[in-house]
Write a protein that binds this DNA or RNA. Structure first.
Lengths: 220, 220
DNA sequence: ACGTTGTCCTAACGGTATTAGGCTAGCCTT
DNA sequence: AAGGCTAGCCTAATACCGTTAGGACAACGT
C-alpha cells in the first residue's frame, strides 16, 4: 500500500475506464454513420489508432459493446427525463406532458442510433443483459412514478378497467409510435413540419381529452 | 413464334419467377431465424441447394432482396387490411377500429421479420426504392381512405387544428407504438396477457372517447 | 533482480457480400 | 441437322467481418 492519493492500481483502473469510454464513443459515432447493426469493431479500432484484437482487452465481444451502449443510453435518458421533470415541476398536465413528449422526441432525434438500440431490436442476436434490462426498467419505473404523481395532482381519471400503469404504458407507446414512424419515414424533415412530428401536441391533447371527466369548455 | 399456349420464353420467365419466389421465401425464413439484418445469402443458397453466386442471376445484390421483401410485405399487408375491412363493412366505429388494430397486431406477430423491415429501419444502408415506397404509400392511402369513410359514417369529429389525415396518422402511430414495444420487450408473451398487447382495446377506446362529442353514458 | 500482469501486436480461421471468368445444356436460327 | 447465343450454374478470388491463439514488451510489485 502506498501513501499516494491515487494508488497505481487506481490509476490503471482509471486509464482502463478511459479506454472503455473512448471505445464506446467511437462505436456510437460509427453506429450513427453506418447504422446500428453496421457497427464494425475494425472501424472503431482504426479510429483509436489500434488493431482490432486489442479491443478484446476491454470488451469480451461485440455484444458486450452493444450492451454497454444500451445501458449508457438508458442512463443518459433517465437524466434527460429528470431534467425535463425538474424544469416543469408543477405546470398544467397539458404543459407537462407536452414537455415530456417533446423531450422524448428530441432525445431520439439527437441520439438516433442509441434510440434504435434502446427501443427496437435492430441487432441480430443481441439481447440486453439482465443488469442492463434492470437499468431500463429503473428508468421506466421512474417515468411511471412521475406520471402517476402528475396524474393525481391534476385529478385525471383513467376509464374503468384500465390501471394507471397501463395509462402510462399507453403514453409511452404513443411517444414511441410517433417517434419511430418519424425516424423511419422522414428522418431528415424537421419535427415541426414533419408528418409525424407535428402529431406530438395533438397526441397529448388526445390523452387529456379522453382522461378528463369535465368536458372542455372551448369546444366549437 | 410457336403455336404453343406457352412460348418457351414464357416458360423460362415463369421458371425464373419461381426461383425468385423461392429465394424470397427462404430469405424470409432466415430473417425470421437470425434477425432481419442477419440475412445471409450463403444460407439462402445452401437451403436452395445452390452456391451463393448463383443468386446473383436473380437479384443484383442483397439490398435488392430486401427491397423485394419490403414490397412483398406491403402487398400482403394491404390484402390483409382489405380482408379485415370486408369482414366488418359496417359495424360500430369501436368494433371496426378494434378489428383493424387486432389485425395489424396479429400481422406483425405472424410476420415479425417482415414487419420490422417494413416499419423500422434495421438494415444498415438499405433504403426502399422509389417503386417500393410507392407501394407502401398506396397501402397507407387505402388505409386512410377507409379510415375517413368510417370516421364520417360514425359522425366523429377531430378537434380543431387537426385534419382527418392527421387523425389517421395518429391511429397508425398508436398501432405501431404498441406493436413495436411488444415485439421489443415481450416478443414471446401471448398478446392477451402481454403488457403492451393488452393496451390495444384501451387505445381504441381512448381515440373514440376523445373524438366523440357526445359524452359516454356509462361513466362511473 | 525476477516474475507477474496488462496491453499491444501478428497470424490465422471461418464467415460475409460481391465480381470475374469458365463450363454446359437448351433454345433459335440457318 | 449444325452452329451459335445465352441463361444459369460453377469455381476462384478479393476484401471485409468477428474472434481466438500466442508472442513481445514494458511497467509494476515482491
Amino acid at each position: 500500500m502506498s501513501s499516494d492519493p491515487l494508488t497505481s492500481d487506481a490509476i490503471q483502473e482509471q486509464r482502463r475506464q478511459q479506454m472503455r469510454d473512448a471505445i464506446l464513443q467511437h462505436a456510437l459515432d460509427v453506429m450513427e454513420e453506418r447504422g446500428v447493426a453496421g457497427l464494425s469493431l475494425g472501424e472503431v479500432a482504426r479510429r483509436l489508432g489500434v488493431k482490432t484484437p486489442s479491443l478484446y482487452e476491454y470488451f469480451p465481444n461485440k455484444k458486450a459493446v452493444y450492451d454497454a451502449l444500451f445501458r449508457m443510453g438508458y442512463e443518459q435518458f433517465r437524466l434527460e427525463m429528470r431534467r425535463l421533470q425538474e424544469a416543469l415541476p408543477d405546470g398544467s398536465m397539458r404543459a407537462r406532458l407536452r414537455s415530456i413528449m417533446a423531450g422524448f422526441f428530441t432525445f431520439a432525434l439527437e441520439n438516433r442510433a442509441l434510440y434504435q438500440l434502446m427501443f427496437e431490436r435492430p441487432v441480430p442476436g443481441f439481447v440486453p443483459s439482465e443488469e442492463s434490462l434492470a437499468v431500463s426498467f429503473g428508468m421506466l419505473n421512474e417515468s411511471y412514478g412521475s406520471f402517476t404523481t402528475a396524474f393525481i395532482e391534476n385529478s385525471l381519471q383513467v376509464p374503468e378497467g384500465l390501471s394507471t400503469a397501463q395509462a402510462h404504458d399507453l403514453f409511452i407507446a404513443v411517444e414511441h409510435g410517433i417517434t419511430a414512424l418519424h425516424l423511419a419515414n422522414e428522418p431528415d424533415v424537421p419535427p415541426a413540419e414533419s408528418r409525424f412530428g407535428s402529431l406530438l401536441d395533438a397526441a397529448v391533447d388526445l390523452l387529456i381529452r379522453a382522461w378528463t371527466d369535465i368536458p372542455q369548455e372551448d369546444i366549437s
